[in-house]
Design a protein around this nucleic acid. Structure first.
Lengths: 222, 222
DNA sequence: TTATAATATTATTAAATTGTAACCATATTA
DNA sequence: TAATATGGTTACAATTTAATAATATTATAA
């Protein structure tokens, strides 16, 4: 991975700006979000390597956002840091136990934040890297897939489905998991809907690397 | 790795004792050292998974110890946390940049320390969810069995059955036990069903390590 | 060694699951 | 507005999986 992407969610524009500036200086690509809901949206769109969440935000709190993200397979392993105005002990513990990697109390020294961010990435680098994705690229901005040197446009649902499978190549995604991620828990769609979308993807991409695991789900083999 | 080993180095016996007690409560194995030099000695002797270093110690400071450890290949990847009485910013940055994974300022809440320790280990052991040893691996996430360097996909029932046997290699699973686990208590299947599945697994994997124990059940020898 | 019980093997059938094409309502774009 | 693309449904075909039945083989005790 060339340049690391960091998503920052905070409702205070000043803090967003200061952190953004400093992290960009350090060589990171920075995306910002002013609320918890937008944070989740942008996370799905940009697939950041690290997410910095303010705990106190209007609407969803950072902890709620963290919990929600951790339940999506694509963000299971993403680094998450909390920022909080409260240096309340139980809140910090709650934050860490919701699956975050660190918890910083305001006022925050940007230099310390940067050191911590660097330390987290340093540690992550040492973890075994997952499978190389060969000649398979997904451009989430353009809804464009490149495979075998061929660029293909997919419809939104098709793209999201493929992107989900590609977020963990090799992992088998259960049909339920796919429904939850792409359609959401409250939408109910027919039994054959996933199949039909899978079929369209295979067709459009001339793709032989989506494997069906009967009775379980689908996976992407790259 | 069953029980994680933690080495704590601090010159204040009280702190050593408190931390040792709390981390042991949490299920960790704890080794203590009253000085930097002893910390290095004990680290080499016990090969801990995490080292907690007080910054201010007579003789070698924690930062010196960390630097020294990080230059030894065997501790290149070991988790290191600093404890410090100073909440001095530049000292914290220096600590993190010397290769530590975290930096906590005293007074330290033991509950927060434990949460941080847990968070670090959680991040570290994001290893693939697989069981087995030697050249036999079962990856539940990928629904894949690797044996003799060959990757094989099994049907669901076959996979579940093999995964069950592999969950305790060497243990003999009674036919009843297998039926309960794979088919559930209320489903009734014929007498030969298990055999047939076992056969398919042996066939597909070219596997000679499922042993039949006549009159009892089956086991997996790895 | 033989009788017997238990398991292995094979073929067959039933059931579950997925693939596919055609179709329609709706949203999007020209 | 017409033309087109999307997202979803349905009915049915195709495939795979799971269970059974019938028969062969093996292990074990008498």
């Amino acid at each position: 991975m060339e340049q690391k992407k960091i998503l920052i969610a905070d409702d205070e524009p000043d803090i967003l700006e200061i952190l953004q500036f400093n992290l960009q200086q350090e060589g990171y690509e920075v995306i910002t979000a002013p609320s918890g809901d937008e944070a989740i949206q942008k996370a799905r769109k940009h697939q950041p390597d690290l997410i910095i969440l303010d705990v106190m935000m209007p609407g969803k709190t950072g902890i709620e956002v963290c919990n929600q993200l951790r339940h999506m397979p694509e963000f299971e392993n993403t680094l998450i840091i909390f920022l909080s105005a409260m240096s309340d002990e139980s809140s910090e513990i709650k934050g860490l136990e919701s699956g975050a990697d660190d918890y910083l109390s305001k006022p925050i020294s940007t230099r310390i934040l940067i050191s911590k961010v660097n330390a987290l990435f340093r540690r992550l680098q040492k973890a075994p890297d997952s499978i190389g994705s060969g000649d398979f690229f997904i451009d989430r901005e353009k809804y464009l897939v490149t495979y075998n040197g061929k660029e293909t446009m997919l419809a939104r649902k098709e793209f999201e489905l493929l992107a989900l499978l590609a977020s963990k190549p090799g992992k088998v995604f259960l049909r339920n998991e796919i429904l939850d991620q792409i359609w959401g828990t409250d939408v109910i769609v027919g039994d054959r809907t996933i199949d039909v979308h899978i079929r369209k993807i295979r067709q459009k991409l001339d793709l032989d690397c989506i494997t069906t695991v009967k009775g379980v789900g689908y996976k992407l083999d790259i």
